[in-house]
Design a binder for these strands. Structure first.
Lengths: 147, 147
DNA sequence: CTTGATGCAAACACTTTGCAACGAC
DNA sequence: GTCGTTGCAAAGTGTTTGCATCAAG
């Protein structure tokens, strides 16, 4: 079963309708397979089906996030990014100077979150980790920088 | 040296001016000593010095974040929150249902981030961890929820 | 005195909502 | 046929910016 089918199934399971727009949005998300902003996604979706509106993208993303098949993530700055959870789990190293982002495939705290969850009686469904720092390039360029 | 003084000193060190507005903002932040949104901070600051405008709050927060004495954090949703880094390091458990947030004092990945940093040549200066899930109350209320 | 900082309001960017029409089930 | 969903545009948020004035250094 493909990622797209899994996601459509999640909609069905929730008693929601599979519309052409939703299908296009989900297929696009699956193809992009990376963190995308709503705007990027909208553009890509419209390349496929031009008449889809931004509201549908936002509404669909909202639904998918609630169904836990899409993860929303705010990389410190401007706008939220979205990614299918089936795309796998990963975290980010964000450079404070140039804002370059490196994806880390390995998960830092599967066990730690479990432990924390138990401690607080939380059912842990996911986690977001962002590590901030200075990337190799920027360390060379500006070893000490205040302005 | 108090938190406020440390923060003011950071401004001085950066060659920036210590104005009444900035002082009020920093003092308020120190008093609140928790994650606050720009709006909350503005309100609290205006209770102290009514004529301070929102722009000054945003601009000052921006400066303080850049000086690394305030940490900005986007708890998954609406608006960014800010906290003085001197308030200590902690993470969050966020309930996906009721959006209640629990602060976790213990750090989950001091060592892990170090290792990651070395691996990618990153100078790690901080990290943000948000664990999502369902809080005890919401687990009882809605064991399975799709709508 | 110089230059950064301020307050105000207008401008912005991103997201949400109202509504009539549409289409999945 | 019902009711969830759509696209559009307008309305909301939260944040940033332009500008003349002000005050820290």
């Amino acid at each position: 079963m493909t990622t797209v089918e899994q996601t459509l199934q999640a909609l069905r399971d929730a008693g929601l309708k599979i519309t052409a727009s939703r299908r296009a949005i989900i297929e696009t998300l699956a193809e992009m397979n990376r963190h995308v902003t709503a705007a990027e996604l909208l553009e890509a979706v419209q390349a496929r089906v031009p008449e889809i509106g931004k509201a549908s993208v936002y509404r669909t993303l909202d639904v998918l996030v609630r169904l836990n098949v899409v993860q929303a993530c705010t990389l410190g700055s401007t706008s939220t990014t979205y990614i299918l959870t089936t795309a796998g789990h990963h975290h980010h190293l964000v450079c404070l100077v140039c804002h370059r982002t490196i994806e880390i495939d390995e998960c830092l705290l599967d066990e730690a979150t479990e432990a924390i969850g138990r401690k607080f009686g939380f059912l842990v469904e996911g986690h977001l980790v962002e590590v901030y720092g200075k990337c190799p390039d920027c360390m060379q360029t500006s070893p000490t920088q205040t302005t």
